[in-house]
Design a protein around this nucleic acid. Sequence first.
DNA 1: GTCAAATATCTTGACGTCAAGATAAATTCA
DNA 2: TGAATTTATCTTGACGTCAAGATATTTGAC
Lengths: 160, 160
Amino acid sequence: MDHVDRILAQWNRERPDLDVEPMGLLGRIARLRTHLAREVEKALSAHGLNSASFDVLATLRRSGPPYRLSPGDLIATTMVSSGTMTNRLDQLEKAGLIERENNPDDRRGVIIALTPKGLALVDAAVTDHVENQHKLLDGLDAQERAALDGLLRKFLGAFE
Amino acid sequence: MDHVDRILAQWNRERPDLDVEPMGLLGRIARLRTHLAREVEKALSAHGLNSASFDVLATLRRSGPPYRLSPGDLIATTMVSSGTMTNRLDQLEKAGLIERENNPDDRRGVIIALTPKGLALVDAAVTDHVENQHKLLDGLDAQERAALDGLLRKFLGAFE
DNA sequence: GTCAAATATCTTGACGTCAAGATAAATTCA
DNA sequence: TGAATTTATCTTGACGTCAAGATATTTGAC
């Protein structure tokens, strides 16, 4: 009988006409994500980053040398609007972690480049971030992780 | 090979020193939650609500008659800060969906009461919301839902 | 009974996000 | 070639959230 179970019990009492079974699963995803996101923010803040700025730097970093992508590429990967990405890039540029370069092939666009400072920072941050992610999964054993991951993969497949 | 798999493959190539296995599961939860949250917002917007305002009205509604809770109770249930709750209540009060009443037992506090208009609105909204939630789970059969819910329950247990 | 500590709620200021619209350049196609 | 359409990015304004601090009241210790 966890928090979500209590919510379902209340709905069953107050609105017995509704089949609220899906609310349990969806509610647990939402609450879990809130807890996880807060823990991730904590780990990243030690490096002066938040998940928004880290996402951009990490996307550039894992794309490999020369650590350059267009804003459009970054938008597609990170699931945010163009306005959000412009705002993130503005801040990262101010902090000296990325630079906007002219795109020689398309004068409408720019190329976002990780600076040496940005590369060093994201490499340090991702090391801690991954270590923290291991801790966050401590509550599940290897078999449970694999089963959960498989089910999430299938569920996510319905949306992308 | 979904979107998250590609991210993991990139990290394995660029940072083979890291064991990024947990990133897959955690990334899928995050992405799934983003997709689900957007779909939920769509369904609620038909009633002039968003998930923030719905959460408050729904918490009051499922608590049962007389549909009254303190801001503190609402904060504990909805996992938001006091400032966030004050803001939500201000808007709901302006819209005539809740009222702030004096708390006869504690003059520091107030009691939030669902108005008849708020009750009618949340009852209509939750009906559509639950129907929409059923649709969101279409990608999983009954057995998969049960297995996923069980694993999420255990995982969530590590945080609350 | 009095005063310090705890509690309930609200206020303030900053930040991240988005939708809609603006701008400029590339592409399509007549 | 030239005009219409599409594309890439940025701008604007509004909203939801939070942390930190303010205010008023209650509780607890003496």
